[in-house]
Design a protein around this nucleic acid. Structure first.
Lengths: 161, 161
DNA sequence: TATTGTTATACTCTATAACTATA
DNA sequence: TATAGTTATAGAGTATAACAATA
């Protein structure tokens, strides 16, 4: 039995055709990588990069009841969260404060300096996002944001009973 | 000067509120993680996981002119591509064949067994994607796919001169 | 001289296990 | 007994540098 693969070698393409363009996985990966790259530049030398921004943003809004809750919300291991918070706290941007009713847990709050920096980062990230979504017309842009938000919120929510 | 952060510690939330829901970065990351997790299960023990699928899919369509072109298209380092192809070739799913006009480059083609497996994986990934996008109504689902495709294609394309 | 692919090495990131303290 | 957080360790994944072959 001869080599079947060699028998039907397809014609040579000039490089790599967009055979994967229909693949949602390739699309999501490509868009996500582009976002991370742009966001990393936007947040400059913030400890933790784009993820550090998400922590800082959550802390500034006072919505972090515990490190564990934040870690799960961000999709990282709780041990990784310890390192991320160590760096942000060392930079004077966030603080671990005692949880009023559970002495095991630590609430995460932004310092004044953290809130100040956050305002700048918000602006820079807004620009980065606008640049990323520029290929979409305004309506599609708005729809895309809404769809991403809906999907992510459903995924992040506790599993339906 | 007293500790400003401690002075305005916000009220305790039950867990982690959706403060980041408006953040495109958090949304993209959450959706992407969910996709990777689902896709990883869908492709079972395929070498390289979801990325192995993308390689196999490209190879089956005969659109891979060189390892480097494929690596750039998939956003991985060329050295990583070597390892991924080693595993897929060892599994008998793809083959490196000589490029007809550039003896440095290797074209990547799927074997008969690779094409066969690909058909099964396509079905399973289609189900996984449908499940991921289930929260969107049919129109939004179609629009979301189109938007992701447009964004990814623009990003992947060579920079405008 | 520049590019493709490979290999070896080093680095980054992440997860695992064990521990303390609380519940 | 189970959970929140920390630490040390190990593992997976990735990139860097050097090389051979070819353009």
């Amino acid at each position: 039995m001869r080599n079947t693969a060699a028998q039907r070698v397809p014609p040579v393409e000039s490089s790599c055709a967009d055979a994967l363009a229909e693949d949602l996985g390739w699309g999501l990966g490509t868009v996500f990588r582009a976002y991370v790259t742009a966001a990393h530049q936007a947040v400059a030398d913030l400890p933790g990069g784009p993820r550090g921004y998400q922590i800082l943003s959550s802390a500034a809004q006072g919505s972090v009841a515990s490190q564990l809750a934040l870690a799960q919300h961000l999709g990282v291991d709780r041990t990784v969260m310890t390192y991320l918070l160590d760096d942000l706290e060392a930079a004077g941007l966030i603080q671990r404060v005692a949880h009023p009713t559970d002495r095991r847990a630590r609430r995460i709050v932004a310092t004044a300096r953290g809130s100040e920096l956050l305002a700048t980062l918000d602006d820079r990230l807004r620009d980065a996002e606008a640049n990323l979504l520029a290929p979409l017309d305004p309506d599609a842009r708005k729809a895309f944001r809404a769809q991403v938000r809906l999907l992510a919120t459903r995924i992040d929510a506790p599993r339906p009973p």
